[in-house]
Design a protein around this nucleic acid. Sequence first.
DNA 1: GTATCCAGAATTGGCGCCAATTTACGGAAT
DNA 2: ATTCCGTAAATTGGCGCCAATTCTGGATAC
Lengths: 214, 214
Amino acid sequence: MSDDLMQTEAATDKKDVTDLLLHDILTGTLPAGTWLKQIDLERRYDCTRPEVRRALDRLSQKRLVQHNPNRGYQVYELDDQRTREISDIRVILETGVADRMIANATPNSIRELRDLAKNFDEMSFRGSIMEHYDANLAFHRALLMLSGNIELVGIIAEIRQRTASAPVSQWRTRARIEQSAREHHLMVDALEARDLKELKRLIEIHIRQAPVKA
Amino acid sequence: MSDDLMQTEAATDKKDVTDLLLHDILTGTLPAGTWLKQIDLERRYDCTRPEVRRALDRLSQKRLVQHNPNRGYQVYELDDQRTREISDIRVILETGVADRMIANATPNSIRELRDLAKNFDEMSFRGSIMEHYDANLAFHRALLMLSGNIELVGIIAEIRQRTASAPVSQWRTRARIEQSAREHHLMVDALEARDLKELKRLIEIHIRQAPVKA
DNA sequence: GTATCCAGAATTGGCGCCAATTTACGGAAT
DNA sequence: ATTCCGTAAATTGGCGCCAATTCTGGATAC
């Protein structure tokens, strides 16, 4: 039996508390600044005290929650400065491997990316916030996989989580979602056409969520 | 009383177990593959069981130790593939901000970097492995700080830890250390001369630990 | 002689208790 | 009326116990 299946199976029964808490932070159910009282989390996720504390410790290591000794944990709120910095890092990394993505792109992988982009489109109509998030993640994961650098995929996923809380709420606007969906398709187009410059441009625009020009 | 002073004060008395364990992994005192039995760590660092388990959990989150459920933790050993991937990421990131480093470099910061480079030189003669490591870290931290991206400094420090276990042992060769020391000075030279291309070239060479040409 | 199986020892990992610290509340003094 | 202080409630966080699982060693069967 594969690990993935095992996890999925366990997930239907009772998921890991860390993931549940992460989920609620990412979806904005627990907004930035919220105090995470251990007793509340214990009840909310129907788990024990040590489980709560482990989850809080892990997420504070990942800089998703802030730890105030003897006072408690609260959902980290990042300022514009940090948000911009993280976006810069993502732009450098993702445009930095754009050439490899083009080099490794096969007709098969391009078809797969189109499917994932379409899947994101559909989620725009009927799908929860988290399904959006997941569909978006799946697309970008597949795209980055083309770089051939597995570590990079993980690191960017990690980095993305640090800013996720803010953008996810921004996603609520339909216009922004549809814009993202269009950009996904444009990126696949550029990839297929092996247009490095255009691909880089699109990646940067997409990350910064800047309006597309031309 | 400042937090820094508090920490230093506490450190002389009894440092955080996570840092101690991290230290021993990074210096190679605990080689890759070593089984980290909780009872041993408990005695080694003169601490309690929960402290050990917290440290192991944190370091397994950082991918420095591998967790085998119900069997134990062992020091992660990474294959050449992953090592190369991580180096690639560092090259992309650090060369990607080279232009900003040049743009933000002031006579003051260049002088500071020279001091740090010289400090590393001295550590080559008389200094423990960890002092080398710290001096190297200090130099690179200061260099990266010039990018103006605080997040980047943190992320690269994090990424570097993932490969640290292997290179640190490689450092034992004096030739390699002296080579690194020379490269540090060359990087400062390139920075001062505002030679972007040369700076990028040096950064890549330094990260990949490839022999310097010309 | 070798393989298998079972029992004892050792190790991991979940859980709850209690002390230390902080916060909230109410009363008294100015 | 407001501020200060002391006490009580609430919250965090350290620590040890014990069950579940795995590993080890020896005895038995083939």
